[in-house]
Design a binder for these strands. Sequence first.
DNA 1: CAAAGAAGTAACTAGTTAGTGCGTTATTTG
DNA 2: CAAATAACGCACTAACTAGTTACTTCTTTG
Lengths: 213, 213
Amino acid sequence: MVVKTTKKVRDADATQARILAAAKKEFAKSGLGGARVDEIADRAKANKRMIYHYFGNKEDLFRIVLEEAYTDIRTAEQALELEHLPAREALEKLIRFTWEYYLKNPEFITLVNSENLHKARHLKKSDKIENLFKRFVGMVGALLDRGVEEGTFRPGIDPVQLNITIAAIGYYYLTNRFTGSIVFQRDLMAPEALEERLAFNIETIMRMVCIDP
Amino acid sequence: MVVKTTKKVRDADATQARILAAAKKEFAKSGLGGARVDEIADRAKANKRMIYHYFGNKEDLFRIVLEEAYTDIRTAEQALELEHLPAREALEKLIRFTWEYYLKNPEFITLVNSENLHKARHLKKSDKIENLFKRFVGMVGALLDRGVEEGTFRPGIDPVQLNITIAAIGYYYLTNRFTGSIVFQRDLMAPEALEERLAFNIETIMRMVCIDP
DNA sequence: CAAAGAAGTAACTAGTTAGTGCGTTATTTG
DNA sequence: CAAATAACGCACTAACTAGTTACTTCTTTG
């Protein structure tokens, strides 16, 4: 097949990509219920009719956006190649990565929140998600085992619980940054505040996992 | 003033209370955007006109529901009387309380999530919230100081960071229980799973705070 | 007990929103 | 190059939704 590089006036792939990017922004900004299909069409500079043509309906579009978001974060995690580092360093790298991914991709958090408000009914319909995470939990499990062998990690830590905690201490801080900044009367998004939080999180996990923190 | 105990056919206070309870449920179930004023009226067995009469509009109603929710959790926290326990026990009691409160009051989490989706614009209008939390942070700060004096806690821990982490490790697990149960292929709400999580959380915090965990 | 005011109701409005019917224009292919 | 196919757009609808108008019914109080 010949790959065309000429800019086409009509380009199905490009239109679909623009719609998906616009949908991600709009769903992240307003949630599934608050998102407006007309707004997505406008942002994508596509006709609303095209959304229904390519993606079926609003809920299907949301499901596809969500699948893309999960695939994206897991792909980035795979690229870390934690197996090539000493366990301790690998764990710290994972904590940093998780924090920075949430910071740079705030839509991810909002999309997941919205999906949970709807009791994960879209993710339930998706089949490719489970395998994505099976590999991920396996990776962290292997990392923990390796740390125990190296003599740096305590044995018996559940990789799922650890994963949840690593995610939680970053995710909660960022998703609740607006109410948090009011309630604690400090700007939780100030650069120093973000650095301080990351350091606190690394220490929390290291104290939990390492024999000699 | 004479307190009437006879059941009135018309009772402004009772109607307002029914509306608030119904609104809390509906907002928690569907978020601010997804909630329907008609649905709130039906649930409350009140006429929709009464909602506008007593609470102004949908957003004001949401703000009042949110203020009530924050006041409620902070009131329950005050009642713990942590100052009467050794620091270590008091800290564990606080972790347990936070977890159990989220478990028993799932609307709290959803309301806070919804408020953060809207960048806390309703809480910004509220004045009584800040003082509520100032006292709370002070309480945890005093607890940490006492633990250091008793020789059980490490010095230099920021009470705000600790508060955020205690909330995070429970909150995240529960708010993301639907996607989490799919992603990790385990029922995160099974009684054993809940017990296991609480134990993991207590250990995480104790290792972070205590000199001799 | 009658007047005043508060509690409560039904039906409506004006605006919005997901989704569609049908026609037009560009691109591909036999 | 003509016919088929796919991309695209306009204008519509049916259903919904926050908020209101205009009214009735009950309760309190001078």
